[in-house]
Design a protein around this nucleic acid. Structure first.
Length: 986
RNA sequence: AGGACUAUAGCUCAGUUGGUUAGAGCGCUACCUUGACAUGGUAGAGGUCACCAGUUCGAAUCUGGUUAGUCCUACCA
């Protein structure tokens, strides 16, 4: 074993071995428990993993390893997502950057070939990252959402939903991304606040009508004046006295000259604006509804680029084509881009005297989250899922606890969205994705089936009837909504293999994901799964029993990590380290906004002047686990990572000490020099109390041995409890505390007096060596789910010494520790607490009196009780060694007491004789300070005890505790005061 | 506009059904290369638990309000 922990030296090779041995498979002989499954949230196949992934993967892997060690058939299902828009955009950009023909020049098929090429080329990034993170996923069943098998599930779902009437096609207003030329769902729209204007426009009344005030026009207010070209009405409130008389009259639409009606509609709010609303059903969601209610036609004035058309498309309110209205648009605006058209139209209205006012106005503007341009509500034919129907059982499943969110507060978020859910637009005008299994004939009939042949067969269509498949693909989230069961082989339930997997792994146990995709993904998975998966009794199956919602990983100042901010951290750079130059290149190279490069470079140089040093996977994972308090965002802290890397080193070195103690320096150093494991001999095993035939040899356990074994039981049950409650932070903390503050700081030190004492009996040495090894071995298993590599690496060394040679070939498959109450030794714990108290008291005196740590001291005990006496007797060796004493004396009443410095340990006084060295004033000051502290505490406690309300109402246990405290403080004060008197008397 | 979450040491965070002298890591101070580890050891300093009121014998913890921050949903003629 090397002197320091070198993560890079071992991590990869262990992962390879695990994978080759098939240890990640859920079906293997040693796993006899029930199925346990986690489906990975599939990352974008062409992307790479960021810290958020590393975080979620740590949790998923920890859970999987934990359950696997408990003997469950643990499946962590792995896979990637095709990520429609994102991937298509990446490839288009790449083609452009390489000067290749764009997708329209290439054509659909050739373009898709390019996408597949890109997927093949970049798809390995994620899987190799996952291997580096130590993820114990079942690679054998890896899925990609565009795989044939998965496409089958997608198709099947679409067809069945269509048959059930839960998918329909319609001409509706959708969120249209004019840059990407596709519809997107409500969720993909990002609303951003912006400062804009409100234009008040005068709309002249037809037929010489006038308003109540005698004006021959109505003023409408709008934030989007350009849409007036598509106005088909003006709405007023039926109760509005200003306009009541005008309902049913007409307006001559300026610039266009179209005659449009004034209608009554509740949407018009008398209090808002001018009380009159222009109605543009084809370009505004509210107007669309008004138009439907009032039967107003819908006039689409924009092209798919959101430029003004030459001739508008006119539809009736039911979506049918309207030939009566002339769609011709004024020549002046044709071909103008939206915002140019706005300028022109406002200017023209102004010059016509029709611009009543312009007011500043704060509004929120919808942007496409991918394309980044303003969304245009656009009238198009799209496919929709009837979400309301599907949502009903999905809401119930959370209400009745079949699905639980951790933390629970996210349930409210889920409910509020689900109870007001809108139909889901699932068609996308993209090429990369699952093509919609629908065909059209020339008469416009729609047929939904698996393929063209099936369409013909089912509908008795002759071969010469021309059919063409829908050009659109499905929203990526439509396919990922099927993830939990699609990955298991659904719908091929006739395949016994699939049926078995469904039975073993569905519903899955827990979904680990971010709150940002609860609507996008979690909710839709619940809806789809419950519609398609039923248990034997026909009851809808939930996709998962628990949703563990993680927070976001932010940078050290709480900013979201993003490429444009240049604060992204690659988990692999945490693991392997990276030079400043390479990091700069990573952050500033190949940017979409090169102008930011300088700022990012500066920031990076300041933050990482020397790049990043390697920390290893285990340290990264431990850090992520330690910071995983539920539902909270995490501000990433390199210092924390460093601290936990040191922790790994601590564990490594503790193990090194154990091996040195058992195997001897020669064997350890030789193995380190050769880079091999230490060859474990029978003699070494015997030294730990294991005889050649595997039987235990006679051992005697010291107090320290019994103590650490007892503490081990406690940390075992603690860590287990925390895993069960998804408190990875607490689990990590418990491990840290035990390993560092108990095992290393105390137990290893306490083992030295035994092992280094030439006179100590061999049974005692065996007992201590055996305990060193066994406690370490169990601790490694306990920590393995969080830190897989270092634990495996050490475990392979110690398992034989701990008598676990044949328990498993890998720690991965070794049983998870179970606490044994019988091994809890409260007496030993109390004794060690006492011992620690005495040792700390001596060290404290040393520090305060500036006594060199190397100087051996004389120690006197005074006023101890029987327990103190016994403990002092029994633990002389420990005391002498750890407190560095030369002499230990028990003072009886009446014994001569040399001038000393004192500390209290319980009721007992610990004295260090300091004749001639005591700085009187300093010592008095020190003691006075202690007394003052006690006085304050005593006052607090006495206030409580003198309060009748407290003494009458507080539980007896609390009362007793306070009483004890008070007595203790008083006693201590008396002793300290005596001491002061003695010093003063010098 | 509605809702959620957060506010604890210089920094990053714990604090489990109200009863602790409010904890950890990092950082800081002093001392120490003692035969696992300087990625270390020992001993320390450091907090009016955002603010105000209330409930209670007792509040970091429960209730209401205020302030600040983060986020979500909705609306915006």
């Amino acid at each position: 074993m090397d002197k320091t922990y070198q993560p890079s030296a071992i991590e990869q090779s262990w992962y390879q071995q695990w994978e080759q041995q098939g240890y990640f498979k859920p079906y293997q002989p040693s796993l006899t428990g029930n199925g346990y499954s986690i489906m990975i949230p599939p990352p974008n196949v062409t992307g790479s993993l960021h810290m958020g992934h590393a975080f979620q993967h740590t949790i998923q892997d920890a859970l999987t390893r934990y359950k696997r060690m408990q003997g469950h058939k643990a499946l962590w299902q792995v896979g990637t997502d095709h990520a429609g828009i994102a991937t298509q955009m990446v490839v288009e950009r790449k083609l452009a950057a390489e000067g290749q023909p764009d997708r329209h020049a290439l054509g659909r098929e050739a373009f898709l070939d390019k996408v597949w090429e890109w997927k093949e080329q970049s798809g390995g990034t994620i899987t190799s990252q996952m291997r580096r993170l130590g993820n114990s996923v079942d690679w054998d069943t890896e899925r990609f959402t565009m795989d044939d098998g998965f496409y089958k599930a997608v198709q099947e779902v679409f067809i069945r939903l269509h048959k059930d009437g839960l998918i329909y096609r319609g001409k509706r207003l959708v969120n249209w991304d004019p840059k990407l030329h596709t519809a997107i769902s409500d969720l993909e729209v990002e609303n951003k606040d912006s400062k804009g204007h409100m234009w008040h426009l005068r709309y002249p009344l037809a037929d010489g009508e006038t308003t109540g005030e005698g004006k021959d026009y109505i003023v409408v207010a709008t934030t989007r004046p350009e849409t007036m070209l598509g106005d088909t009405g003006v709405a007023v409130n039926a109760n509005d006295p200003r306009y009541q008389a005008l309902i049913g009259k007409d307006i001559i639409l300026p610039l266009v000259g179209r005659r449009i009606p004034i209608v009554a509609d509740e949407h018009a709010d008398m209090e808002k604006g001018t009380g009159a609303v222009k109605v543009t059903p084809a370009h505004d969601f509210n107007d669309y509804e008004v138009g439907k209610r009032a039967g107003l036609p819908m006039i689409n004035i924009f092209t798919m680029n959101a430029d003004v058309r030459d001739v508008a498309q006119v539809f009736n309110s039911d979506g049918s084509v309207n030939d009566d209205i002339d769609g011709t648009l004024p020549e002046a605006y044709r071909g103008l881009e939206r915002f140019a058209a706005r300028k022109a139209i406002v200017a023209d209205l102004d010059s016509l005297g029709l611009l009543d006012a312009i007011k500043d106005h704060d509004l929120t503007v919808p942007y496409g989250d991918r394309g980044g341009v303003v969304i245009e509500p656009m009238l198009t034919d799209q496919w929709y899922v009837d979400a309301k129907t599907l949502a009903k059982p999905a809401i119930e499943a959370v209400e009745n606890g079949d699905i639980q969110f951790v933390p629970k507060s996210y349930e409210n978020m889920y409910f509020s969205w689900m109870r007001d859910i809108q139909d889901w637009c699932i068609s996308r005008q993209l090429w990369w994705g699952h093509r919609i299994p629908a065909w059209y004939d020339n008469a416009g009939n729609v047929y939904v089936a698996h393929d063209e042949a099936e369409v013909r067969a089912q509908n008795n269509l002759a071969d010469d009837v021309e059919l063409r498949q829908d050009n659109d693909v499905l929203d990526t989230w439509f396919s990922s909504a099927l993830w939990t069961f699609g990955t298991l082989g659904w719908p091929n339930l006739d395949d016994p293999e699939v049926a078995k997997r469904m039975a073993d792994f569905h519903p899955t146990d827990v979904l680990v994901t971010g709150f940002d995709i609860i609507f996008f993904w979690v909710a839709r998975m619940i809806m789809m799964t419950m519609h398609f998966c039923k248990d034997d009794a026909g009851k809808p199956q939930v996709p998962f029993k628990t949703v563990y919602v993680t927070g976001l990983i932010r940078d050290e100042v709480g900013q979201k990590m993003s490429k444009s901010k240049g604060n992204v951290l690659d988990p692999l750079d945490m693991i392997d380290g990276i030079s400043l130059d390479a990091l700069l290149e990573k952050r500033t190279g190949n940017m979409m906004q090169p102008q930011l490069a300088e700022k990012i470079g500066k920031r990076t140089k300041k933050e990482f002047p020397d790049g990043i040093t390697p920390h290893g996977t285990d340290a990264l994972r431990f850090t992520l686990a330690a910071m995983a308090s539920t539902g909270r965002d995490i501000n990433w802290d390199m210092k924390r990572l460093e601290g936990y890397r040191n922790f790994c080193n601590k564990l490594w070195n503790a193990s090194r000490y154990v091996m040195l103690s058992v195997a001897g320096e020669e064997a350890v150093e030789a193995a380190a020099a050769n880079g091999t494991n230490i060859a474990i001999t029978d003699a070494m095993k015997a030294a730990c109390g294991i005889t050649a035939d595997g039987q235990s040899d006679a051992v005697v356990l010291s107090l320290a041995d019994r103590w650490i074994i007892s503490r081990l039981q406690r940390v075992e049950s603690e860590v287990t409890r925390h895993f069960e409650q998804y408190r990875f932070d607490l689990a990590a903390q418990a491990l840290y505390e035990f390993i560092w503050n108990e095992y290393c700081d105390w137990y290893l030190e306490l083992s030295k007096p035994v092992l280094w004492d030439a006179n100590a009996p061999e049974q005692a040495k065996r007992g201590t060596r055996g305990t060193l090894v066994r406690v370490l071995e169990a601790t490694l298993r306990l920590a393995h789910p969080i830190m897989p590599f270092i634990t495996e690496s050490i475990w392979q060394q110690v398992k034989a010494l701990a008598g676990k040679e044949h328990s498993a070939d890998s720690i991965m498959l070794a049983p998870y520790p179970v606490a044994q109450d019988a091994l809890i030794d409260t007496e030993a714990e109390a004794d060690i607490t006492w011992l620690q108290g005495v040792i700390t008291a001596v060290r404290n005196i040393r520090a305060e009196m500036n006594i060199a740590p190397s100087k051996e001291l004389e120690l006197l005990f005074k006023n101890g009780d029987d327990d103190d006496f016994r403990r002092a007797e029994e633990n002389q060796t420990f005391l002498m060694k750890l407190a560095k004493l030369e002499k230990l004396t028990w003072l009886n009443d009446g014994d001569d007491e040399p001038m000393s410095v004192t500390q209290l340990v319980g009721d007992m006084e610990v004295l260090i004789p300091m004749a001639g060295f005591i700085d009187k004033d300093a010592e008095v000051a020190r003691l006075t300070k202690s007394i003052e502290k006690l006085e304050k505490e005593l006052e607090r406690v006495n206030n409580k005890l003198n309060n009748p309300g407290f003494t009458e109402k507080a539980p007896a246990a609390v009362l007793e505790k306070e009483n004890d405290k008070a007595k203790g403080y008083e006693r201590d004060m008396v002793k300290l005061k005596e001491q002061i008197e003695k010093i003063k008397a010098l």
